[in-house]
């Protein structure tokens, strides 16, 4: 469980996060949704302490994180897996080496065990070829999937995904969404996913936070989000023609 208590964050006087309080639950996929520029990435980076918050606290299973020492941060971070919005693959290393990296750094596995684990992770994101290619030689969607494989390699206790399926085709998106949910439930971890993809919301939204202009605007799950009368959330959900048609169809029934 990750508790966020009254955090605020400004960049050069511009308030990006404004008194945000929320709880991310263990064993659930917690989604943070919101329009572009609403502060999702900034919130996630505050969670993992890449940004220091101006005010407020962040607690991991009751442990203070935002104010701990570098050494303590490093210790807790060994339980983190994170997928950056841009992938952040190590471009001097091949796909295979990228996924093997955390295992080589922090596990006591032998070479053969590492090999099995890397293959297992790459299989789960549907990447069975391309092991020996470098990040510059693979497509954007493939980079995302390598980043996901790398994030889950060490069986993290806390998984952070910043738009894990932006840039993926609808079919692969669903594979990735399901993978994230499976891992979350199978290992009972705390997962936070930033997204503005309504498919993902309905697919894996066990808990949903709607951010608007750096504030928590609404909270619910994949069922209640279709019925809420919150105007901004409605605008977000029914932005696409597809969802408007579905709503009309269901109202006729």
């Amino acid at each position: 469980m990750i508790e966020v208590q009254h955090i605020s964050k400004s960049f050069s006087g511009r308030k990006i996060l404004d008194d945000v309080s929320l709880v991310f639950e263990t064993g659930k996929t917690n989604l943070v949704i919101g329009g572009s520029g609403s502060g999702k990435t900034v919130l996630m980076k505050c969670l993992v302490a890449l940004y220091t918050v101006d005010e407020g606290d962040i607690l991991y299973d009751g442990r203070q994180f935002s104010k701990s020492t570098e050494e303590d941060k490093r210790l807790l971070r060994k339980d983190f897996g994170m997928v950056f919005q841009g992938g952040a693959l190590f471009d001097s290393q091949t796909v295979w080496e990228n996924v093997a990296f955390p295992l080589q750094m922090f596990s006591s596995m032998h070479e053969s065990e590492i090999k099995d684990r890397v293959e297992f992770c790459l299989n789960r994101v549907n990447l069975n070829a391309a092991y020996q290619l470098y990040p510059s030689q693979i497509s954007g969607g493939m980079k995302k999937r390598v980043a996901i494989a790398r994030a889950i390699a060490l069986n993290p206790k806390y998984l952070f995904c910043d738009e894990p399926n932006s840039g993926l085709d609808p079919k692969t998106s669903i594979v990735i969404d399901n993978l994230i949910q499976e891992i979350t439930e199978e290992y009972n971890i705390t997962t936070v996913v930033n997204t503005h993809d309504m498919n993902s919301v309905l697919e894996i939204g066990q808990k949903i936070i709607y951010l608007n202009k750096g504030q928590k605007w609404w909270e619910g799950d994949k069922n209640s989000i279709l019925e809420t009368d919150n105007k901004e959330v409605n605008d977000f959900v029914y932005a696409s023609e597809l969802f408007q048609r579905i709503r009309k169809a269901s109202q006729k029934l």
Binding site: V48, L50, R74, K78, F84, G86, L89
Partner: peptide, 14 residues
């Protein structure tokens, strides 16, 4: 700038 250093930090690497 491509967040590779952040990615290292998140893994717990100095």
């Amino acid at each position: 700038v491509t967040e590779q250093i952040d990615a290292l930090e998140i893994m717990g690497v100095n």
